[in-house]
């Protein structure tokens, strides 16, 4: 359950803070969430990746649909011939990667910080 909570926190906070703050703040959210939810390293990384991917790929997919894919193929060409779908996938991958690494840091901190500090 705490991993699904992680996923929802990332997507919700990532979406709202994303409008105002630089893109990397999502990794800070991930660190805090993984730490406070007392995550295990491996599962936290997996769910973190999933959350970041869903948020970035999902939001860009929404924008792409609203735009009827006018821009994404042009950006794909700029990146060396990617399709619209591939551009959305790359966006998702980068989002996933950042959140996964943030979650990893959060979980790793939890492993080194004695439990009594937060209990």
């Amino acid at each position: 359950m705490k991993y699904w909570t992680h996923l929802i926190i990332i997507i919700a906070l990532g979406y709202f803070l994303g409008q105002w703050l630089p893109w990397w703040m999502i990794s800070i959210v991930a660190i805090m969430s993984a730490f406070l939810l007392k995550h295990k390293f491996g599962l936290s990384v997996m769910f973190g990746f999933l959350a970041g991917f869903v948020l970035w790929a999902g939001f860009s997919l929404y924008l792409d649909v609203e735009n009827q894919s006018i821009l994404s193929p042009k950006i794909g060409l700029l990146f060396g011939g990617l399709s619209s779908t591939a551009v959305i996938a790359v966006t998702g991958l980068i989002g996933g990667l950042i959140v996964a690494m943030g979650s990893a840091v959060g979980a790793a901190i939890r492993e080194v910080v004695p439990n009594y500090i937060t209990e």
Binding site: G18, W23, E66, N67, S72, I94
Partner: peptide, 15 residues
């Protein structure tokens, strides 16, 4: 990162 961030990068120009 700035460019691909769907909240403010090129995706924000997908009118």
């Amino acid at each position: 990162g700035d460019l691909i961030n769907p909240f403010s990068g090129f995706w924000a120009n997908a009118e």
